[in-house]
Write a protein that binds this DNA or RNA. Structure first.
Length: 268
DNA sequence: ACACTAACCTGCAAGC
DNA sequence: TGCTTGCAGGTTAGTG
């Protein structure tokens, strides 16, 4: 489900309820996620205070006094704050109970997400590329890294060791805005066009965050509200519909196991 | 180092 | 009304 804007929206939604709180209890009803929920996480975090919550790539990191929890939402995960006890719904796997009485509940039908505890660092965070909204990420950087690479540019920018947080939706949208065909080999794009692309990635992500993310099926922020960026999508999930720019029919092609929609006239 | 595939899992829509 | 097939917001492990 969530790409960077959805994870960021989730972070902003839940943070006010969690900062400074102590974890009174944790209930785990399903440990079998992308990786098994870390053994012993219950005893490790019970009674610990939440000092900070941050996002790195599509991960949320809960910093406690004695270590940190790394939470990923996978394809279908979501977090939601409950201000009063609620019924357990199907696929509600984990719940944190806070001293305030509020609860944080994790819901994930496909179970591609993860909940990992570590007292040191998390290996998942090694080898990640720059944050797309950081200064270090620009056209120069993309151009330099892309030299002699044959992979399709869409797969290139979705590669988390190149840049993090860009998933299928925002890769597709950014390439459309930049007029670049998603299947063009990464090494055959000019520095100038990479500058366009890097800028459009930033613009698209920021705008999506402002709209609360993209809700396709089941995404909701920490308060249960959907995101409204779907209304502003140019190409994603619009195969066969008219291009918003030239009105010709949009084309679909699979690139690196992911469906990719683009305009054959506007994207070269 | 790079490129590509299968795999993890459930729900839903389309086709027969 | 079923049953089967394919696809979905992500990421890693394995292969060549």
């Amino acid at each position: 489900m969530p790409e960077l804007p959805e994870v960021e929206t989730t972070l902003r939604g839940i943070r006010p309820f969690l900062l400074g709180e102590t974890i009174a209890d944790i209930t785990i009803r399903q440990r079998s996620l992308r990786w098994p929920v870390t053994k012993g996480i219950e005893t490790s975090i019970r009674g610990s205070a939440i000092k900070e919550i941050s996002r790195r790539a599509k991960y949320l990191q809960f910093h406690l006094d004695n270590g940190s929890m790394l939470v990923h939402l996978g394809m279908s995960g979501s977090l939601r704050v409950l201000t009063q006890p609620g019924f357990w719904k199907k696929h509600d796997h984990i719940e944190l109970k806070l001293n305030s009485g509020n609860m944080l509940r994790y819901h994930d039908p496909r179970r591609f997400g993860s909940w990992l505890w570590s007292q040191g660092g998390h290996w998942q965070l090694k080898k990640l590329g720059p944050e797309p909204l950081s200064e270090g990420f620009d056209g120069e950087y993309l151009y330099r890294l892309s030299k002699r690479r044959q992979v399709a540019v869409k797969a290139f920018i979705m590669n988390s060791s190149v840049v993090v947080g860009v998933g299928n939706i925002y890769a597709s949208e950014s390439l459309f805005l930049s007029g670049i065909r998603p299947d063009r080999p990464a090494g055959r794009i000019s520095k100038k066009r990479y500058s366009m692309l890097a800028n459009n990635i930033k613009i698209t992500l920021k705008r999506a965050i402002d709209r609360g993310g993209t809700t396709l099926r089941d995404y909701s922020n920490g308060n249960g509200d959907p995101g409204y960026f779907k209304q502003e999508l140019f190409v994603y999930a619009r195969n066969g519909l008219p291009c918003m720019n030239c009105r010709s029919r949009l084309t679909e092609k699979r690139i690196g196991q992911r469906s990719s929609v683009f305009c054959m006239r506007c994207q070269v």
